Deep mutational scan, measured.
Amino acid sequence: SGVNQQQLQQLMDMGFTREHAMEALLNTSTMEQATEYLLTHP
């Protein structure tokens, strides 16, 4: 699906929903950016 499943699982383990985590990974290129994205786009 174009996203790193390991990163997706890590974000879900942090408490984010699958949909939200996927959106973040699709819009960013690193785990750090994805986390930042999730925190700034709740």
Rank of each mutant, 00 (worst) to 15 (best):
F16P: 00
H41R: 06
N4A: 08
S29A: 12
M12L: 07
Q7C: 07
T28G: 03
M31N: 02
V3Q: 06
Q33E: 15
Q10Y: 13
N4I: 09
Q33L: 06
F16D: 00
L26G: 05
Q5G: 09
Q10I: 14
Q10A: 12
T40W: 08
E36I: 08
L39Y: 14
L39T: 11
N27S: 08
A21E: 00
F16S: 03
N27T: 06
T28F: 09
L25S: 02
T40S: 13
T30F: 02
S1H: 13
M14H: 04
M14F: 06
L11K: 00
Q7S: 09
T28K: 03
Q7Y: 15
G2S: 12
E32S: 06
Q9D: 08
Q7D: 12
A24P: 00
S1L: 11
Y37V: 06
H41Q: 10
G15H: 03
Q33H: 05
N27R: 13
T17S: 14
L11E: 00
L8W: 04
H20R: 15
L8R: 01
L25E: 00
G2T: 12
Q6N: 11
H41Y: 13
E36K: 07
A21F: 01
Q6V: 12
Q5V: 12
E32Y: 04
H20N: 10
T30W: 02
S29V: 08
R18W: 08
L39N: 14
P42K: 15
E23F: 15
E36A: 09
E32K: 08
Q9I: 10
Q6W: 14
G2I: 13
G15Y: 02
Q6T: 11
E23W: 15
M22V: 11
E19A: 13
M22S: 07
A24C: 02
R18A: 07
P42D: 11
M22H: 07
Q10W: 11
L39H: 14
M14I: 05
A21L: 02
M22E: 09
E32I: 05
L38Q: 03
M22Q: 07
L8Q: 03
E32F: 04
E32G: 05
A34R: 00
Q33G: 07
P42M: 15
N4Q: 10
G2R: 09
Q7E: 10
L8H: 03
H41I: 10
M31G: 02
F16H: 06
M14S: 04
L39Q: 15
N4M: 10
L11W: 01
S29K: 12
M31V: 08
A24S: 03
V3A: 07
T17L: 14
G2C: 10
N27D: 03
L26E: 08
Y37G: 04
L8A: 03
A24I: 01
D13V: 09
T35E: 12
E36M: 09
L38A: 07
S29W: 09
A21S: 11
E19P: 09
T30G: 05
T17A: 15
S1T: 12
Q5K: 14
L26Q: 09
Q6F: 13
E19W: 15
L26P: 00
M22R: 08
P42C: 13
Q6S: 12
T30I: 02
T17I: 10
F16L: 01
T28C: 07
Y37K: 04
N27H: 11
A21T: 04
N4W: 10
L8M: 06
R18M: 09
E19G: 10
E19I: 10
Q6Y: 13
A21D: 00
E23A: 09
Q10S: 08
D13P: 00
Q5W: 13
Q7I: 08
T30K: 02
E19L: 11
F16Y: 13
L38F: 04
V3R: 05
E32W: 06
T28E: 02
M14T: 03
S1E: 12
L25K: 00
Y37C: 06
M22L: 12
T30P: 00
T17M: 12
H41N: 08
Q5P: 14
T17D: 10
H20I: 14
Q5C: 07
L38C: 06
M22D: 02
L11D: 00
F16E: 02
F16I: 04
D13G: 14
T30Q: 02
N27F: 10
L25M: 06
T17H: 09
E32N: 05
E36C: 15
R18K: 09
P42N: 14
T30M: 01
L11R: 00
E23V: 10
M14L: 11
Q9E: 09
R18F: 07
M14P: 00
M12N: 02
H41P: 05
L26K: 09
E36D: 08
H20L: 15
T17K: 14
N27P: 01
G2P: 12
T17F: 07
H41E: 09
D13L: 14
A21I: 08
T35I: 15
D13Y: 10
E36W: 09
T28S: 07
T35H: 15
T28Y: 06
M31Q: 03
H20V: 13
L38Y: 03
S1A: 14
G15S: 03
F16G: 03
Q7R: 08
P42V: 15
A34P: 00
T40E: 08
L38S: 02
A24E: 00
Q7W: 15
T40P: 03
H41G: 11
T40L: 10
H41V: 07
F16W: 09
S29C: 09
E19F: 13
T35Q: 15
Q6P: 06
Q9S: 09
T17R: 13
Q6I: 12
Q6K: 12
T28R: 03
T35P: 04
V3W: 12
E36V: 06
T35F: 15
H41C: 08
V3C: 06
Y37N: 05
L39G: 09
N27A: 12
P42G: 14
L11T: 00
Q10P: 03
A24K: 01
Q10N: 06
L8G: 00
E23R: 11
L8Y: 03
H41A: 07
